[in-house]
Design a protein around this nucleic acid. Structure first.
Lengths: 243, 243
DNA sequence: CGGACTATGTGTGTTTGCGCACCGATTAAT
DNA sequence: ATTAATCGGTGCGCAAACACACATAGTCCG
């Protein structure tokens, strides 16, 4: 664990400072210093991102916001990083809420300028960018999901995501394994899996599980499932994220 | 919410299938079909990643593994994606455990081949790649942290991360705000913040907080803090991740 | 066929954090 | 200066998930 003290009065964004002088000079005309005020919203879920910010002494928190006042920080961005990495990934929207947690200043650049950086890349490269974005989205959403949602909804979501990917209605799976995935005890999985089986949504026995009623699972699954899947599907289509 | 049924017997990785024929042909010679067996470890935290996998009908789970048998899935990868996105980000290691959750087949490529894709990129582009990796790492670690660690450790971690970025020992911050970040109730924050104050690690009053004993905070903070910070610091140095 | 192993089902008490309700104290606004 | 809003502190009952302990039933293998 690093015991070094926090930097005193960090003068500038370290990400930009890590660039060779030539590249920094190239970007400089595109950068504008702006104040960051406490609780300022940088972008909301679904918004088109107009600017990306490179904090100096300010801090931006990425939040996964739930419906009812419940929120969870999924990322903290200070002078070591930037907001709007999605834009770099070729996607002008984000599922997270970015707001200023610590006031100060930042350098900002228009989203369009940043996107130009990715011109002349191969299709493969751009595809992987979009996939990275969908993975980031999956991580941030499921992070909040694990925090706020009850086990039955989470198990349903997990089964649906597996079902989407495995391509068959029955597959090998123990309660023990699921408990490791969901970060809970086997006994907890036993209880809710039993409920699902009693309601004829799934059936299982000794390490073998079958999806009986997909729509029923979708009904009790949290809404995270739909969002994650939509984001994933979009990342595969070249124009899914057309700006 | 998409009500579409799962694809039946998905023939091949959809990420690769989304490529224009020309690019797919270019990559084809580098791809090798391999079987994926249940519980097979694709890579462990800290390992050098040798291959990246594009699952066909198999599924790979990304796990944040805690010390004592506790683990949590932070990402699920099927035919819509690939393992080892870190390699694409210019980093040959990962903090996550990737293991086969659903058996089947996958196409694989050596890490070296994938890294060649990022040759001839600007420093800026490569720097943003590394930062993306560090953000992914931050998200996956804090996801598990929020699941397994107690509130006092998490609050200490969060204060340290803020302290690192804000550059001063005291800053504006209410318990209400912290509760939103940590995804708990204000009353919960009140309790542990009170403990920290009684132990002279911090002091606060009406929306103003001061870090009194940074080392003390590091002591009670979870180990996540050190890992996240190390990863973040490495992403800034060009050679931090030298292959 | 019989024993070992694995997967599942269940119970009891405990902890953590939630929901709500309320109070006092300080700051900010008119 | 009085009022209103904000911030912090606290108590109580409840629900979810924990840790541990144990019971039962398929499955595998000699």
């Amino acid at each position: 664990m690093p015991k070094s003290p926090a930097l005193r009065a960090p003068p500038a964004n370290r990400l930009l400072a890590a660039l060779p002088p030539k590249e920094y000079q190239r970007l400089l005309p595109e950068l504008e210093t702006v104040p960051m005020t406490f609780a300022q919203v940088i972008h909301s879920p679904g918004d088109t991102i107009r600017y990306v910010y490179f904090p100096n002494d300010s801090i931006v928190s990425l939040l996964a916001a739930e419906d009812h006042h419940a929120s969870l920080e999924v990322g903290m961005i200070g002078n070591e990083g930037m907001t709007g990495i999605s834009v770099f990934m070729g996607v002008n929207t984000s599922q997270t809420l970015a707001l200023v947690q610590g006031p100060g200043t930042a350098l900002r650049m228009t989203a369009g300028t940043l996107r130009k950086e990715s011109n002349s890349l191969s299709h493969f490269h751009r595809l992987l960018h979009r996939y990275s974005h969908s993975l980031l989205t999956q991580m941030s959403l499921s992070s909040a999901c694990n925090r706020f949602h009850t086990l039955d909804g989470r198990l349903a979501r997990w089964l649906l995501m597996s079902h989407d990917r495995i391509g068959t209605d029955d597959f090998r799976l123990t309660q023990e394994f699921m408990s490791n995935m969901l970060g809970v005890r086997r006994e907890g999985v036993n209880k809710v899996a039993g409920d699902l089986q009693r309601n004829k949504l799934i059936s299982y026995s000794r390490g073998h599980i079958a999806i009986l009623d997909r729509l029923g699972l979708e009904r009790i699954s949290c809404t995270c499932y739909g969002v994650i899947r939509a984001e994933s599907d979009k990342s595969l289509s070249k124009n899914g994220y057309a700006a």
